Computed example of a mutant assay.
Amino acid sequence: MTRLIDLSVTTRSTPSEATPVTVDLLDHRTGATVLGLTPEDFPDGMAISNETVTLTTHTGTHMDAPLHYGPLSGGSPAKSIDQVPLEWCHGPGVRLDVRDVPPGEGITTDHLEAAFKEAGHEPVPGDIALLWTGADRLWGGAEYLREFPGLTGEGTAYLVERGIRVIGIDAWGLDRPMHRMIEDYQHTGDNAHLWPAHIYGRTAEYLQLEKLAHLGDLPAATGFTICCFPVAVEGAGAGWTRVVALVEDAAP
């Protein structure tokens, strides 16, 4: 029996979002007037509703496409979100437990190797790697924007060079918190501190899933399939994504 586990957050206005989200409702009665009719023209005195939503493509659980990282990836034009092959967005998942990495610090190659060892799994091409930081417990508050570890550039290369096309994280971003990267750059003058995981995508193309949730609900580190098809926004660097794990449970 296949069980579905939702690994997405609800898209809404919250202090956990860095940019505003607005939802303007056209209710059932008002909906009649935009059609040139009255509510009384419809059964039950109601037409149909609609919503106008204003948000960025990086709001809520979403997928970053190579175009987000730069105009080129591996020397070729970087793919926009509508150009991402759907085959990349469906595959075996592996949950990498990196909850011991402190907020603000980098998830290194050593952390990843230890997590793969703990999972009893060697990375193979087509795996979808999910970084389990535990930061989704902060979803709903402003601290969600600041209190999480992030993947290093070397860690990104380690995964992508092993054929992993999709890397997800249960935090606001894949890199370390913005304020930590900027502070380190200002203190050292070394721009390698700025978004190294993202910028690695200029070397080799890969996809990021940001703002995942409920990775702790997965029954094990492996043995499940991830579906993460993004909304195809033409020419955009990201798209909203409902991420779902498919778990095969034993028949009762």
Rank of each mutant, 00 (worst) to 15 (best):
D100T: 14
D100K: 12
S80E: 02
E122G: 09
V53H: 10
G91Y: 11
N50D: 15
T52V: 13
G91K: 11
L67E: 00
R99M: 06
V84W: 01
I107H: 03
G91W: 10
P103Y: 07
H121D: 00
D64G: 06
P102L: 08
D97W: 04
L96P: 03
S76E: 13
W88D: 06
I128M: 14
P102R: 08
L67I: 04
T59M: 03
A119E: 15
D97A: 02
I107W: 02
T61H: 02
V101K: 06
I107A: 05
A114G: 14
G91Q: 09
D100E: 14
L86Y: 09
G126A: 13
G134V: 09
A114N: 08
H58R: 12
P92E: 08
D100G: 10
K79G: 04
G70W: 05
G74D: 09
T56F: 03
D82W: 03
T108P: 06
A65S: 08
D100A: 14
W132A: 15
E105T: 11
V98T: 05
V101A: 12
C89T: 00
Y69C: 09
H121A: 08
P92T: 13
G74N: 08
R99C: 05
G91N: 06
P103Q: 10
L131K: 00
T133P: 03
P85Y: 05
E118Q: 12
V124Y: 12
V94I: 13
A119Y: 13
L130Q: 07
S73R: 01
F116H: 07
D64K: 13
T109V: 11
P125I: 06
G74K: 09
L131N: 05
G134Q: 09
G106D: 15
A78V: 02
D127F: 05
L130D: 07
G93C: 09
D64T: 07
Q83P: 02
P77V: 02
E87Q: 15
G93W: 11
K79L: 10
S80L: 04
L86E: 12
T56H: 01
I81F: 04
P66K: 01
L131Y: 03
H111D: 11
Q83K: 15
L55K: 13
W88E: 06
D97C: 03
E113N: 15
T56E: 02
T108N: 03
H90L: 15
L96Q: 05
F116M: 06
G75I: 14
D64A: 10
D82L: 00
C89I: 00
A115V: 12
A129G: 05
L72R: 11
T56K: 00
T133H: 02
T61L: 05
G74L: 10
T59A: 15
A129N: 07
A119F: 11
H121I: 09
A78I: 03
T54L: 14
E51C: 07
L96M: 07
I128C: 10
E51H: 10
L112P: 05
H58Q: 10
V98I: 10
N50A: 14
